[in-house]
Structure formats: structure tokens, C-alpha cells
């Protein structure tokens, strides 16, 4: 009986848990409270790392999609699909926390700020990717189409970035606060949170992959009998 591929989700899960016990200390105790934004600024420590995890996930999806079309290895497709799904989860969190951040700071739940818009459009692409997966029947064809969308979708990121930036400079009503360089205590807390979220991302990704592998095994066993 094959062993469950437990080790990676376990290692990253433990790492994430350790980080998660330290991160709140750094965020709440070590890092100071921002004068103007108050406690709402603390959302930043989880909001931005979530965004990084989301981009990491879509980048992994892009890489695995290329490898799938190149090598035709079923595992690459599985990894691509799983990273897209975890990325979608983090994207959702970025959008929700973005709205919660925007309300006290800018007085509206949603502002069409360039970075938030970029996240939103990438989220839409990831959602389309997810839907494509559920609406296709033939597994081999589905994997191929998904890989194509994974590549096309990620190639779009620089365009969205450039377009939203141009768009926002053409409509200067909403201006994101000047890019403030963080004081060292906040920077340290922030970097630690990035590491925490990456550990969390990989823990979830490995967990998702082990689920997908188990599903595949079940399906192939069912096909045999």
C-alpha cells in the first residue's frame, strides 16, 4: 500500500504554525502603531503577504502549465491546478482585507487603486481557470486547456499592471497614500509575515496536492474494477 505523501504538508504546516505563533507578537507588540492609520495599518501585515502568496501561486501555475505542455506529465497539471486553487483562496483574502482596509482609511469599501484592481483582475482570471476546470469533461483535454489558460492568464499580469497604472494616473481622484518607507520595526514584522504566509501557502499547496493525488488514485482504481 503506497504511503500517503504526508511529509511536505507536515513540514510546512509545522513551519507555518511556528511562524504563526511568533507573527502576532511581532505585529502587535514589536511593531509600533502607525500614527495616522492607527490599528487599521496592522491589516497591511497580512494583506500584502497574502497578495504575495497569490502572485506566487499564479506564477507556479504558469510554470507548471508550461511544463505540462512540454513534458505531458500529469503531475505538472495537478500541481498547476492546485497552485491556482490555493492562489484563488489567497486572492479572495487579499480582496476582502483590501476592502476592510479601504473603509477606515479612504472611507469607501472599494477604491479603484491600481494594485487592488490588478488583484481583482487576476482573481477573475483565476476564477475563470477554476470554472474551466469544472466545466470540462474529458480529463486529458481539460488538462491541456487548463495549461493554455494558465499560460495566457499569467502573461496578462504585466499588461494589467501597466494598464491599471496608466488608468489611475489618468484619473487622479483617488490617490493611494504616498509610498512611505517603513520604519525598521514594521519592516521586520512585515518580512516575518511574508515568510509566514509563504509557509502557509506551501502547507496548503502540499495538502491540496496530496488530496488531488488521492483522488486520482481512487479514480484509477475505480476504473480498474
Amino acid at each position: 500500500m503506497p504511503q500517503r505523501p504526508y511529509i511536505y504538508p507536515f513540514v510546512f504546516g509545522i513551519l507555518a504554525l511556528i511562524c504563526l505563533t511568533i507573527a502576532p507578537y511581532l505585529v502587535f507588540m514589536y511593531a509600533g502603531i502607525e500614527k495616522e492609520m492607527g490599528l487599521a495599518q496592522k491589516i497591511f501585515y497580512y494583506h500584502v503577504p497574502s497578495a504575495f502568496s497569490m502572485f506566487l501561486g499564479s506564477f507556479l501555475c504558469f510554470i507548471f502549465s508550461i511544463f505540462y505542455l512540454w513534458k505531458r506529465d500529469k503531475n505538472c497539471d495537478l500541481w498547476a491546478a492546485c497552485s491556482a486553487e490555493v492562489s484563488l483562496l489567497f486572492g479572495t483574502l487579499v480582496l476582502i482585507t483590501g476592502a476592510i482596509w479601504a473603509k477606515p482609511i479612504w472611507g469607501a469599501w472599494w477604491v479603484w487603486d491600481a494594485q487592488l484592481t490588478l488583484t481583482l483582475i487576476l482573481w477573475l482570471i483565476l476564477a475563470a481557470y477554476h470554472m474551466l476546470r469544472t466545466y470540462l469533461e474529458d480529463p486529458v483535454q481539460s488538462a491541456r486547456f487548463r495549461a493554455v489558460l494558465g499560460i495566457i492568464g499569467f502573461l496578462n499580469v504585466p499588461f494589467i499592471h501597466y494598464a491599471t497604472k496608466l488608468w489611475r494616473t489618468h484619473h487622479p481622484e483617488v490617490v493611494r497614500g504616498e509610498e512611505i518607507s517603513l520604519p525598521p520595526d514594521m519592516k521586520a514584522a512585515f518580512f516575518f509575515c511574508v515568510i509566514t504566509f509563504f509557509a502557509l501557502f506551501f502547507a496548503l499547496l502540499f495538502k491540496r496536492v496530496s488530496l488531488a493525488k488521492a483522488q486520482n488514485e481512487l479514480e484509477s482504481l475505480k476504473a480498474e474494477t
Binding site: 492609520m37 492607527g38 490599528l39 487599521a40 491589516i43 497580512y46 482585507t97 476592510i100 477606515p104
Partner: peptide
């Protein structure tokens, strides 16, 4: 300031 927003964000995550 803004404690409720911060708590909401963290809890949701």
C-alpha cells in the same frame, strides 16, 4: 483607533 476593522480582517483570514 479602528480596532474593529483590524479584528474583522484578522478573523476573516
Amino acid at each position: 483607533q479602528h480596532l474593529e476593522y483590524m479584528t474583522a480582517a484578522y478573523i476573516i483570514i
